[in-house]
């Protein structure tokens, strides 16, 4: 298979956001409005804080939604902040989010897009 090549994307960050079920839609909307191109959502079960809260723990759903979004470094802070605010993470019990640097990213990039930036 000659003639195939791989284009790497550099300067990319990964935002991961763990939320109580039902909150993801809002956060996704906010991220997309700030220029995030796509998101992966998976379902998970959380543990830890609930057990330590005693009876108030029932107010936190055990089921979580995990949103993962790859963003460019330029937009990273903007998207991160928008998601934080949209999810209401400044109130207790909503979720947690973090950002990591990505070494390299690769996916299908249309010819036209590559030509445009070249």
């Amino acid at each position: 298979m000659a003639g195939r090549n791989v284009t790497y994307l550099s300067e990319a960050n990964l935002i991961t956001c763990v939320l109580q079920t039902g909150l993801a839609e809002n956060v996704l909307d906010a991220a997309k409005n700030c220029g995030a191109q796509g998101a992966t959502i998976s379902y998970a079960r959380g543990t830890g804080i609930r057990e330590r809260m005693g009876l108030l723990g029932v107010t936190i759903d055990e089921q979580k939604e995990v949103i993962r979004i790859i963003v460019s470094e330029e937009q990273a802070d903007r998207v991160f902040e928008a998601m934080y605010l949209a999810g209401g993470l400044d109130t207790p019990g909503k979720g947690i989010m973090f950002m990591t640097k990505l070494e390299r990213v690769a996916t299908y990039i249309p010819e036209s897009v590559l030509k445009e930036i070249a």
Partner: peptide
């Protein structure tokens, strides 16, 4: 070992509000 979390009245309200609302 993890300690029990003490909640203030306000943050308890912040938790209970959306919980009952939904």
């Amino acid at each position: 070992k993890p300690k029990k979390i003490e909640m203030t009245l306000k943050s308890a309200g912040n938790l209970l509000g959306p919980y009952s609302y939904v």
